[in-house]
């Protein structure tokens, strides 16, 4: 009798627990099904017309299809990405504010721009990574990067290398070149890759490291020529351009490195929301139409998320941060910020 009673009590308790559990489960699944129950805000790190903006606007209509809600896109440029990063971080961690970012915040710490980097965010998707090429005007006599370096060493402080503001792709790759070759070149920073290439075509600078995305059409038209691909493995479509490591094996330690475009939400966002976003973005990035766009754009598709994306971000940050430290461009040592050497 007693035992029966006890059993029934246990059963009751178990049942209650099960019910509770089931209830919470159904609640959470209901939540997952509910996300998103309103339109989202998409914050683009760079201004209208830039590469990040192009990727964001080409991708979002596909995402909306899978998400079932609109993503209202706004550009919040400024501070080399610090403004948008800080803005998204200041919003509630509920998955309704999504950051469309590029690689820049990864070195905001060492440059002393902002304390926030992507470790404060969850990567929903790393969409694609860019390839970097070293370009010069087609009528220049140089055939390889080695020719440039020799020429610079023979004529110190006269040859001009274009770059862009600290934290940008041309800036990082220029630092790689200068640390590796120690050549006495003049560096002239422009507002970005586009304005830099315009100056290159106008003859106001002599060579520049730029994303293939920006240079592709100029290369195809034969106005500019690529002297090297900044990679240690062959890049599809660029097989006839030598790898930078062929003449400068010391570059190996920096590679693979490249700019990337990604989608981020603040740390602490509920798992269900992250999952819903991750699924929608992964499907959208995989759409053939978007993949064609990425290829035309001169970027390499990645479509990674979760741990893989976190590892990717960590490696990228280690390389950039320590590179700047070794080049003497860092204001705060990566060691101080707990960024391990690659």
């Amino acid at each position: 009798m007693r035992t029966t009673k006890k059993t029934s009590l246990t059963t009751l308790l178990k049942g209650a627990a099960a019910a509770l559990l089931a209830g919470s489960l159904s609640l959470s699944s209901a939540f997952a099904a509910d996300f998103p129950d309103k339109d989202l805000q998409g914050v683009i790190m760079w201004g209208a017309g830039g590469a990040t903006d192009n990727v964001a606007r080409a991708l979002t209509p596909h995402v909306e299809k899978y998400l079932g809600k609109k993503i209202v896109l706004t550009n919040k440029s400024g501070g080399a990405g610090a403004i948008s990063t800080n803005y998204v971080f200041s919003r509630p961690a509920n998955g309704y504010t999504v950051l469309y970012g590029a690689e820049n915040p990864q070195i905001h710490g060492v440059l002393g721009l902002s304390k926030l980097d992507y470790s404060s965010f969850i990567p929903v998707n790393i969409i694609a990574s860019g390839t970097t090429v070293i370009v010069t005007r087609a009528d220049k006599e140089w055939k390889t990067v080695k020719d440039i370096v020799d020429d610079v060493k023979a004529h110190p402080d006269t040859i001009k290398m274009g770059t862009a503001g600290p934290g940008s792709l041309p800036f990082v790759v220029s630092s790689m070149l200068k640390t590796t070759t120690e050549m006495p070149v003049l560096t002239v920073p422009f507002d970005g890759e586009g304005p830099g290439m315009t100056a290159l075509e106008g003859g106001h600078i002599d060579f520049m490291a730029v994303g293939l995305t920006a240079a592709r059409e100029q290369l195809k038209a034969g106005r500019l020529k690529a002297l090297a691909v900044v990679s240690d493995t062959a890049v599809p479509g660029m097989e006839n351009v030598p790898l930078i490591t062929e003449d400068f094996p010391a570059f190996k330690k920096f590679l693979p490195w490249g700019p990337f475009y990604g989608i981020f939400v603040k740390q602490g966002t509920p798992e269900e929301a992250v999952k819903a976003l991750t699924d929608a973005f992964a499907k959208a990035v995989a759409e053939p139409q978007f993949q064609d766009f990425i290829k035309d754009f001169g970027a390499t598709p990645l479509n990674i998320h979760g741990d893989e994306a976190v590892q990717y971000l960590k490696h990228n940050q280690s390389v950039s941060a320590w590179l700047l430290q070794d080049a003497g461009a860092a204001k705060i040592s990566p060691e101080e910020l707990g960024i391990p050497r690659p």
Binding site: G49, R57, G194, R216, E217, K220, F293, F297
Partner: peptide, 17 residues
């Protein structure tokens, strides 16, 4: 600058070509 982005998204390739 934005129009150039629009051309890209529509599969055209703004550039000298």
């Amino acid at each position: 600058a934005v129009m150039i982005g629009a051309l890209y998204i529509h599969g055209l390739k703004p550039g000298p070509m």
